[in-house]
């Protein structure tokens, strides 16, 4: 599908950038005049995806995180979050609620939140090469 608008963002995998990343995507989404709930859903989903990159993709150092957001026809919004980190050996297992390799302070809910706060989630990963998470959300027609 043709993108009506598109933006790209790249930044270091520092945890202080989590707020920047979801805020930037939320600003880009504003052109679709989203509801408060839709805006919160996208912010939360982006925050989960970016946190995964920081905690899991680059566990021993810093790497770059790349975000592409697109506005498609029919008020469809897509966000993809990509890293060049360690990759996910078993995507099915990683997506199970409560599964985490992040230690006691992580709830293991990242993918479950992305799934439930957007309409479609696609994860592709190659061990040693990186992971791309693409989320799609249909925004409501409010007029």
């Amino acid at each position: 599908m043709k993108a009506l608008n598109e933006m790209k963002l790249s930044f270091k995998s520092k945890s202080i950038n989590e707020g920047f990343a979801r805020g930037a995507v939320a600003s880009f989404l504003m052109q679709l005049d989203p509801t408060v709930a839709e805006l919160a859903d996208i912010k939360t989903a982006v925050s989960e995806a970016v946190t995964n990159c920081i905690v899991h993709a680059y566990p021993d150092g810093e790497g770059m995180i790349y975000i592409t957001a697109k506005v498609l026809e029919g008020r469809i919004f897509t966000v993809s979050v990509r890293d060049r980190g360690c990759g996910i050996p078993d995507i099915k297992q990683a997506m199970e609620p409560m599964f985490t390799t992040g230690g006691e302070e992580r709830a293991g809910l990242g993918f479950a939140v992305m799934q439930s706060f957007t309409d479609k989630l696609r994860v592709s990963s190659r061990p040693g090469r990186g992971t791309t998470v693409t989320m799609t959300k249909q925004l409501s027609h409010n007029d």
């Binding site: 919160a40 912010k43 939360t44 925050s47 006691e104 302070e105 992580r106 709830a107 479950a112 939140v113």
Partner: peptide
């Protein structure tokens, strides 16, 4: 104002 699943981890850790 905002929270992601880190807040759930925060609650679970304090529960323990």
């Amino acid at each position: 104002q905002f929270m992601d699943s880190s807040a759930i981890g925060l609650i679970m850790g304090r529960y323990r």
